[in-house]
């Protein structure tokens, strides 16, 4: 709780700094050392948030995370000068999370598109120095692969059992999410706000993780 309050304080502090920076940058004023210090402080705070968020995507390696940090700082630099981005002065927390989410979203989409492209290469294409065609290199089903499929099935069963241990309300939220129903629609069905649904969902994911870990030991 203490940590949460400190985090909120940093958001508020950054928002005040952003207001001062924008007052100068959007009116064509020159940067004073104080405004530069404000900018440095905002960037430093964002740096750690970005990393916190990127950690939720294990497919992003360190290089990707650094690139996301760089793109976010570039974006911040542009938006601070943009007269049309006044909302960042009032909703700096939402601005930061949405901007980082957008950059991560684009990054993941590009990665997935590349995977689809590589997956659609011809099976008759020659690969490697041996001159073998790709389809000759595709493995048959092996005992290892069968074992992997079995492990996946077991995990799925354990997950279902773990969900069954949750309180009815949490179970309802996670089951709806697993059916692919958007958070906003769940919120409407359960008469809650989308933010609450996100909180419940995040809490349930942690709980499920704990149940599965305990079972493993």
């Amino acid at each position: 709780m203490q940590h949460e309050r400190q985090w909120h304080d940093v958001v508020v502090e950054c928002q005040e700094r952003v207001q001062r920076i924008r007052a100068i940058l959007t009116s064509g004023g020159t940067l004073t050392p104080e405004i530069r210090a404000d900018l440095e402080a905002v960037i430093l705070a964002m740096r750690n948030w970005i990393l916190g968020r990127a950690k939720r995507f294990p497919e992003l390696d360190e290089d990707a995370v650094s690139e996301i940090q760089l793109k976010t700082i570039q974006r911040l630099d542009r938006d601070l000068r943009s007269p049309g981005f006044g909302s960042m002065e009032r909703q700096f927390g939402a601005y930061t999370s949405t901007t980082v989410n957008r950059i991560i979203f684009e990054f993941l989409r590009n990665m997935r598109e590349q995977r689809v492209l590589s997956a659609s290469e011809s099976l008759d294409a020659q690969v490697g120095e041996e001159g073998l065609v790709r389809h000759e290199l595709i493995e048959d089903i092996t005992p290892e692969r069968l074992a992997e499929a079995y492990r996946e099935e077991q995990l799925h069963t354990r997950l279902q059992q773990a969900i069954a241990q949750l309180p009815p309300h949490d179970r309802e939220v996670i089951n709806l999410r697993l059916q692919g129903i958007p958070g906003v629609e769940i919120a409407q069905r359960l008469n809650l706000t989308p933010v609450n649904i996100t909180r419940i969902y995040n809490r349930v994911v942690v709980r499920l993780h704990q149940i599965l870990i305990v079972e493993e030991h």
Binding site: I43, R53, I73
Partner: peptide, 29 residues
């Protein structure tokens, strides 16, 4: 994008950086 954004929700707590992550982040900044 809105679905992705809503699912992720509010900002996470800031991460505590390792020395290596800090060096990388400093390079970026």
């Amino acid at each position: 994008f809105l679905e992705f954004n809503l699912t992720l929700g509010e900002l996470d707590e800031p991460a505590v950086l390792t020395a290596e992550q800090e060096a990388r982040a400093d390079h970026v900044i």
